[in-house]
């Protein structure tokens, strides 16, 4: 893949994407694409297939039909280890439940992610990113001592420390009150801009819909089929 081809390819490209479990459709999207720098919102109620879509985009599952291309590479057609490598290279994840490792400090959580992605340690990058999300004073704190907001910031910092082109966030705001939900989105936009990442946010939280130019609205596949 040359640089020119990569630049030309959409960051996320879905073609005829659908997924069923035991013959029961759980996700039906069809064609959709997201270009680099174009933050997108995947909006839909529970059961509309948001998590399935994230799993297909990150290569954790193989969709029953259609294809997923990430940065021009066919995620859905690669063998497992190549998917791991592609995901490691291009995607950062922010989980709804944060999933910071409780035995490690914030700094160590970032260092481990950095080690997994690049096999190297860049202490300066970790410190500057933690400072950017406003956690400099909590850098050596354990996750369980962080507030919900602090934990969110730490989780975002960890997703970005590997400098991914795509940051996928699963329900980052649904547990937050209005003020914090909007602050969270601001932080995501700000840090994504600083690191050159593109956001793909999946949520049922309509409060943040207005912030996104690109919105993919999912409906329950059962209803879609009807």
């Amino acid at each position: 893949m040359t640089g020119a081809a990569r630049a030309a390819a959409p960051l996320v490209q879905l073609a005829g994407l659908a997924h069923s479990i035991a013959g029961k459709p759980v996700m039906a999207i069809g064609d959709w694409q997201q270009t680099s720098g174009d933050h997108a919102l995947v909006l839909g109620p529970s059961g509309s297939g948001k998590t399935t879509l994230i799993n297909a985009i990150t290569g954790l599952i193989t969709p029953s039909s259609g294809s997923v291309h990430i940065d021009g590479e066919p995620m859905s057609a690669l063998p497992a280890s190549a998917r791991d490598a592609l995901r490691r290279r291009t995607i950062g994840l922010v989980f709804q439940t944060l999933r910071l490792i409780p035995a490690l400090s914030v700094r160590q959580n970032l260092a481990l992610a950095q080690h997994i992605a690049h096999g190297k340690h860049d202490a300066a990058a970790i410190e500057s990113l933690i400072a950017r999300v406003g956690l400099a004073h909590r850098i050596d704190a354990r996750p369980r001592t962080l507030s919900q907001g602090e934990g969110q910031r730490a989780a975002i910092a960890r997703a970005l420390i590997t400098r991914p082109r795509l940051v996928v966030a699963d329900e980052p705001t649904s547990a937050l009150d209005d003020a914090n939900a909007l602050a969270m989105i601001d932080l995501l936009f700000e840090t994504a801009a600083a690191t050159g990442a593109t956001l793909l946010v999946a949520t049922h939280d309509t409060r943040i819909q207005s912030r996104f130019a690109t919105v993919l609205t999912l409906r329950s596949p059962a209803r879609a089929a009807a």
Partner: peptide, 16 residues
């Protein structure tokens, strides 16, 4: 289990 799955998702190999 969640930690380990998360590490796998952010790119850690099964072997590691």
């Amino acid at each position: 289990e969640g930690d380990m799955a998360m590490l796998r998702v952010i790119g850690a190999s099964r072997a590691s």
